[in-house]
Computed example of a mutant assay.
Amino acid sequence: MRIAVVSESFLPTVNGVTTSVCRVLEHLAASGHEAIVICPDAGAPATYAGFPVHQVPSFAYRQFPVGLPSPQVQRILARFGPDVLHAASPFLLGAQGIAAANRMGIPSVAVYQTDVAGYARSNGLGITSALAWKYVRWVHDGADLTLVPSSASEYDLRTAGVQRLARWGRGVDIERYHPNHRRGARAKELREQLSPDGELVVGYVGRVAPEKQVERLRALRGLPGVSVAIVGDGPARPVVAGALRGMPVTWLGRLGGEELAAAYAAFDIFAHTGTEETFGQTIQEAHASGLPVVAPRAGGPIDLVEHGVDGLLYPPGDERGLRAAVGMIAADVPLRLRMGEAGRRRVLGRSWSVLCDELVGHYETVIVDRAEEVQRIGSERAYS
């Protein structure tokens, strides 16, 4: 199969969209498929997993490259001749990719990964929620199938009027993120840095951006025996640093690979703060690492955290609820261990191999459906 992946985000930018695209490309390569990547021109590598990477013009917004519509997109697609187009978190670039695919008779799968309306609101883009959802509906109506990662995002898209939806989550590397890494040298060294006096470490991993609401960790101020560690960076760091001033906070910056795995291993509790996540990949990584998770009862976490079993869900925006949840788990060692074990068990069947096989199945479905539609239209015209 030949797959053209049009992604709004790619390396060197690291986020949930980039991570999932990289894992998909690795799986496609291992399975003998052919692929190309079309992404913003932000310093991406020339190839990934052996596949060519084509960059198109973009502009930077809050340290995030945004791909611009370009006539190159259709030319690249025409030269490659894909069987299917994969639009990762389509916005401007992805929308053009889907439109070009339709003009060329190529079926497309759109992967919904970003709450555009929530992002616009949090980042002050001056776009009303109604207008943002109208744009989302227009983009996804062009695709043959839209894959949604959670029940919350499926509800939002159905409410907005988007049709042709199916559920597709995200995989997690259950070997890289593993409770056993707590015994590793790097995790032990980091643990000494984060907990010099035996503090319980509450960790956050992700972009430090307005929509992530990391400043809500201020709710943990004064919680006895608790320190905070933040992995990541982004445009909201000055605001978050101000909100957390005077608290025992360690900023670890952007981490990846084994360094990120060691960071999870050095945490005791994982805290997720944003209320606008369509999924929550870092929650899965935390669970794979054997950590209990505290998260708002909103968006992707609703499907990823079983309240009282592998973590606690608090009311969205309720900082006292966040504090109470962390305090409850921090004070009860057996509960913390049980939740960590339950979280690990929860993700054991969610390897990237399993999830990517599901994705290839969706590709095959839209290819067959499009061919049958073309045949049906041809038959109708022959008899008219």
Rank of each mutant, 00 (worst) to 15 (best):
T278H: 01
Q281K: 12
R323T: 08
P296E: 00
S289G: 03
R350I: 12
V347R: 02
V309Q: 11
H287V: 02
D303W: 08
A288F: 06
V354I: 13
P296D: 00
L335F: 01
R344F: 09
G321S: 04
L304H: 00
H362Y: 15
P315N: 02
D318F: 06
E364F: 11
A331K: 11
V326S: 02
L335P: 00
G280H: 07
D303R: 04
M328Q: 12
G361N: 11
G290C: 08
Y314T: 02
P334Q: 07
I329K: 00
L313M: 03
G290P: 10
V309M: 08
T282M: 00
G349V: 12
L312K: 09
D357F: 11
C356W: 04
P292S: 03
R346H: 15
A325N: 02
L291A: 04
D303F: 09
M328Y: 07
Y363V: 14
V293K: 03
L348I: 09
I302M: 12
R346Y: 10
L337W: 12
G321T: 07
I329P: 04
Q284R: 10
M328V: 07
G327D: 04
R345P: 00
V354P: 09
R344K: 07
T365D: 13
H362D: 12
L355A: 13
G317H: 02
L291Y: 07
A342W: 09
T365W: 12
S289I: 05
L355N: 13
P292M: 04
M328L: 14
R323K: 08
H307C: 03
I302D: 04
G317E: 03
A324R: 14
A286M: 00
G300S: 08
A298D: 03
R297M: 01
